[in-house]
Simulated scan of single mutants.
Amino acid sequence: MKRTSTYADILNTGYRLFAEHGFEKTSMTMIAKEVNISKPALYYHFLSKEVIIDVLFEEICKSIDFANFFNIQHYTKDNFEEKLIADGLHVITKQKVDDNYSRIMKQYQALGYRNPKYSQKLLEVLNGFTTGFVELLRHGASIGAIHDKDTLVRAQMLNMIIDSIDNFISYGFEYNYADIWTKAVLTIVKGEDT
């Protein structure tokens, strides 16, 4: 079993505590106690709670980058639709199994109203999905898996659907997200009008 570093333990603990108690109510003392280190040791790794919040935000944004879920090189003419469905379902499943993700992302969205660096980074992540879907659809067209028609609009639709599913999950709606994503992909990829 691989032992995690104190730095990673602090981030993982901060992630959980921030999700459970919020940024305001989580203290450095709470984090140090949970990690089982002294406060000076915690301050050795992170100068402040705000630094933990910032580093954690960067790590979360990296983890939800489009390329982490959709590897364009793995898409072929024979597997394009099925792979797009499966990769999107992986995004959805990842969120559903991590209750802390929705809670902490709501807090970062709220921070975005006060501090534009958070809202700008979240917009970059969303735009990254649109750009990624455009590249993926263009790849699909170049290999003859799909038609090269309304690529940008279809990419935006895929992004809007996956982001809406993300939001609905965070609100606790129990919809059949797998069927919704599958139907959306088949409709959008085949270029059918809805």
Rank of each mutant, 00 (worst) to 15 (best):
R114E: 14
Q73L: 04
D99W: 08
M160P: 00
A155G: 02
H139T: 01
S170H: 03
K117P: 00
G132F: 06
I169T: 07
K83W: 08
I162C: 11
T130I: 13
I162A: 08
G140C: 06
M105N: 08
H147S: 13
Y113Q: 13
F80C: 05
T76Y: 10
G112Y: 11
N115Q: 14
E82W: 07
I161W: 05
Q107F: 05
I162L: 15
S170D: 11
E124D: 11
F70Q: 12
Y171C: 02
K117R: 12
L137V: 06
I72A: 02
T130G: 08
L123E: 13
H74G: 13
F168H: 09
I146D: 01
F168D: 09
T151P: 01
Y101L: 05
Q107T: 03
I165N: 07
D163F: 11
F80D: 06
G144K: 14
I92K: 04
G132D: 10
G144F: 02
D99L: 15
V134Y: 08
V125W: 04
G88W: 03
F168S: 04
L137P: 05
D163K: 07
L158H: 06
K83H: 15
L111V: 01
I104G: 10
Q73Y: 11
M157Q: 09
H74F: 09
L136S: 03
Y108N: 00
M105Y: 08
L84H: 01
K106E: 14
I72R: 00
Y171E: 12
L89H: 12
K83L: 15
L84W: 06
M157H: 01
L89G: 12
K94H: 03
V125K: 05
L111G: 01
E124W: 05
N100I: 00
D78C: 01
Q156K: 13
M160T: 03
N68L: 10
F129I: 05
L89C: 11
I169N: 07
I161Y: 00
S119I: 13
A86E: 14
A110M: 11
Q156S: 04
I143M: 13
N159Q: 15
R154T: 00
S119F: 10
Q107S: 11
I104M: 01
Q107I: 01
E124T: 04
F168K: 12
K83Y: 15
Y101A: 00
L152M: 11
Y118G: 06
L84E: 02
G112V: 10
N159V: 07
N115D: 15
F69N: 08
R154D: 10
